[in-house]
């Protein structure tokens, strides 16, 4: 948690990352940037999914619809925050010639997406019955 707070401080203090260690090969930095953007797209897709649930499942009960939509929106927020955090951590690791940080997040996100998908199928089927 302290590590996370330190990283949050780094998001807003761009000079500090620049001053640490040495500048890595620019291609590694660009690859890191593309990974960051890919995670940001994932986040945007989750947010778009939240809107889509609200828009395209109008027969669902209000609670389920809003609950699913908010869950997807929250997942999008988490994903985007994690994207910038992971980017900063990777950038620092490269500057210090350390191993890249490992993360449980991809596994966690895929489990959450799978659960939401299953819930959506069940709710849509049950919603149409009732």
């Amino acid at each position: 948690m302290i590590e996370f707070a330190r990283n949050v401080r780094l998001w807003f203090a761009p000079q500090e990352v620049r001053e640490e260690g040495h500048t890595p090969d620019y291609r590694f930095s660009l690859a890191n940037e593309r990974t960051f953007l890919a995670w940001l797209r994932t986040a945007l897709a989750l947010i778009g999914g939240g809107f889509a649930v609200d828009q395209f499942l109008p027969d669902l009960r209000w609670g389920w619809r809003v609950g699913l939509a908010l869950a997807l929106l929250a997942a999008g927020v988490l994903c985007s925050l994690r994207a910038v955090n992971h980017w900063v951590r990777c950038e620092r690791a490269m500057r210090h010639d350390q191993d890249l940080p490992v993360s449980r997040f991809p596994a966690l996100l895929s489990v959450v997406v799978a659960v939401v998908a299953v819930v959506m199928v069940v709710v849509v089927l049950a919603g149409w019955e009732g």
């Binding site: 998001w11 990352v17 940037e33 947010i47 908010l70 999008g76 927020v77 985007s80 925050l81």
Partner: peptide, 22 residues
Amino acid sequence: GLATRQATMAVLCTVAMAACGA
């Protein structure tokens, strides 16, 4: 390289969009 401020701005825009969505 990508400036940290730019990355943070992009992410803040995304997060705020999600908040508007909520």
